[in-house]
């Protein structure tokens, strides 16, 4: 059977999911990490793969075990990261750093499942750290959001980071 293009999702869905993205960014900016965890599906997959700069014509085979990751998290691992940040021992975050996320280029697309949408977005993360060191990290994201009850939950996120060398001394932050 030939695939027919899917009709765009209803406007109410687009608005609700876009609001969820903005809410998520606000919760993270405000370090409401438990609030953020509550926006994640039980089976959430949260990934950021490593890349390398290669010539367009390069024919090197892929690594058998994959390129390695910056994040490859399920809900348990994300909870573990949150636990660490909340442990009181993460000196790099004390005093807290000034972090602000801007979400843009949001596209909400229908999927074959009625209760799921695919979402493309761009995240700019401004981090002002010790002694005024400021870094702007940018990333593209492709998400799967699922409606459960009255809420939209993040079911999967693939992040593409736009830096070949990480320009900061840590990544104690979620995209």
């Amino acid at each position: 059977m030939l695939d027919r293009p899917l009709a765009p999702p209803p406007v109410e869905v687009i608005v609700a999911v876009t609001q969820a993205l903005h809410r998520e960014a606000r919760l993270l900016d405000n370090e409401d990490l438990d609030g953020w965890l509550a926006m994640l599906g039980k089976d959430v997959s949260y990934r950021l793969e490593l890349k390398s700069r290669r010539f367009r014509a390069d024919r090197s085979p892929p690594f058998p075990l994959g390129p390695g990751v910056i994040f490859n998290e399920d809900l348990g691992r994300l909870k573990m990261r949150v636990d660490r940040l909340k442990s009181g021992f993460v000196w790099a975050e004390d005093p807290p750093n000034y972090i602000r996320r801007a979400v843009s280029n949001v596209e909400v697309l229908a999927t074959r499942a009625d209760n799921e949408v695919r979402v493309h977005s761009v995240l700019g993360m401004h981090r002002n750290r010790i002694d005024g060191t400021t870094r702007l990290l940018t990333a593209g994201r492709t998400d799967l959001w699922r409606s459960e009850g009255s809420a939209w939950l993040l079911a999967a996120r693939e992040i593409v980071l736009d830096h070949s060398v990480l320009p900061d001394s840590n990544l104690n932050a979620f995209f």
Binding site: L50, S52, F63, I70, V165
Partner: peptide
Amino acid sequence: LLGETQKMVLG
């Protein structure tokens, strides 16, 4: 050695 190079700038 496995995977891509994980590169980071540190001051």
